[in-house]
Write a protein that binds this DNA or RNA. Structure first.
Lengths: 272, 272
DNA sequence: GGAATAGTGTCTCTGAGACATTATGAA
DNA sequence: TTCATAATGTCTCAGAGACACTATTCC
């Protein structure tokens, strides 16, 4: 045994936190198309004071993991998630320069094509917190300046979103109650980053039973008014347990494996 | 604010644990085919004393999450994982009747068509722990008797495995260095639970560049000796950490607005 | 009518599954 | 020779993509 580092043996256990990557769809002033945006929170303390970070906080003693994620989503944006799913548990030793923190991260989709270009952002007219701001989720400059390992976290969340939208009915959670097929296609194009054939896309969507045609049409356009559709499937805002539905997406790339050497003391299975 | 429950405010924070669902492939005496097995640990204390549970334990202060998973895998089976991936973080309030525990669960694949029918199991010749035993992973009776919420955890792990094997090259991690195509097919059939057409399966496998034919043949069979193949892809024993994103994406979609309600207390972003 | 988008029809290509056929070694 | 499995070939069908074509509205 190694008793060299006595201080190490006295360390407090890793802290537990819950953070959330929140995506909304929003008109991009520069590009003129819709892009993915996310709210960030400016840190007011060290470490990374002044930098932008994902909203998050400690896990309340009487809070489920998902409740904690929804809670800091509400606190940050004033919004309720249309979709909420656990992303990953990040537990690296050096995530924070101070105390070790294990973060269980969720990702969420919210509606809201809100106002406030430089300010509150989607749905944020009510809020005037200078320490909260919305940014383009795929802006490299934004990602590069994030605190902690939040850049990796956001990039992984984007990857998950893309793989989820590929086969799932996720798009309507970024849209309103009624939508045109072209709007759904725009969501897919925004997330996947490529143009889709309108005719084939329409055929696919009409094949899914959860998208139902209404007898309304979107007026006010310059040309022929498109029919409005609505989503008739499950609209529970959050996915509770582990996600059992649908198909797989992609395999996870490897990173490294560290294997201990001998099997020292026997397993102590005193915890679930 | 509600200061009613003073005891609640004194509660210690949730404990953090890491558990692992370990799968191996093994000949089933009754059925004559290979099936999935997993090692369980008998609890020696309350709660659930005497019941079987997943191997696990607290997270060491100087241990990454995957190290902790690999460590209790080694302690339980004496084996090193051929594959290791984070499964999910379980944090329900009532998982344990005593203190609240948040478990970060990994799932693993190990090789070993080991000995010891009722005993140590795959690769377990070295160990003689009466509190460790291997069981059929899909045996309802086994699942029904597990401690805590481990039944749900194993079922979710099985679901992940099935979805992973569908398109990934996972099978070779349950096999040895060289294998026949029929063996790979057996793995798929065991995991997916259905028979596969040998001809079509062969065609698909030969299409993947990571499976390479050797000039050896498996001798000793009763009939025509099948050719041996080997895996030439990535063999890092563990795939941990989130997958790294690949492509960028763009945005451009619909129009809609939803307005939020109120915004309670402000976020406290003091943790990653 | 012209422009632009909504919406339909049709062709091809590809991959999966069903299944017939040939090859080869052991008993 | 017979048997069982290895290995290959062929047919069909369904879904995805490419793309031509019609429909409807505003200007």
């Amino acid at each position: 045994m190694d008793y060299a580092n006595v201080a190490e043996r006295r360390e407090q256990p890793p802290a537990l936190a819950v953070s959330t990557v929140i995506f909304a769809l929003r008109e991009d002033g520069n590009v003129g198309r819709k892009t993915l945006w996310l709210p960030l929170v400016r840190r007011t303390r060290e470490p990374f004071k002044g930098r932008w970070a994902l909203p998050g906080g400690p896990l309340g003693a009487r809070q489920s993991l998902q409740d904690a994620a929804a809670a800091n989503l509400l606190a940050t944006t004033g919004l309720v998630p249309q979709y909420l799913e656990q992303l990953y548990a990040f537990g690296g030793l050096d995530r924070s320069p101070s105390r070790r923190v294990v973060s269980i991260v969720y990702w969420a989709l919210v509606r809201g094509d809100g106002p406030a270009p430089g300010g509150a952002g989607p749905g944020g007219a009510l809020r005037e917190d200078p320490n909260v701001a919305w940014y383009r989720a795929e802006d490299p400059a934004v990602l590069a300046d994030l605190a902690f390992d939040h850049r990796q976290i956001v990039e992984y969340a984007l990857w998950r979103l893309r793989n989820k939208v590929e086969y799932g009915s996720i798009a309507h959670r970024l849209l309103g109650e009624r939508f045109t097929l072209a709007q759904v296609r725009e969501v897919y194009e925004a997330v996947l980053g490529r143009a889709l054939d309108p005719a084939n896309f329409r055929r696919q969507l009409r094949g899914t039973p959860d998208i139902e045609a209404t007898d309304e049409f979107l007026q006010g356009g310059k040309h022929r008014p498109p029919r409005l559709y609505r989503y008739t499937g499950d609209t529970t805002p959050a996915a509770t347990g582990p996600p059992l539905p649908q198909h797989p997406a992609q395999a996870a790339p490897p990173r490294q494996a560290s294997h201990p050497e001998h099997h020292p003391a026997l397993h102590e299975t005193d915890t679930p």
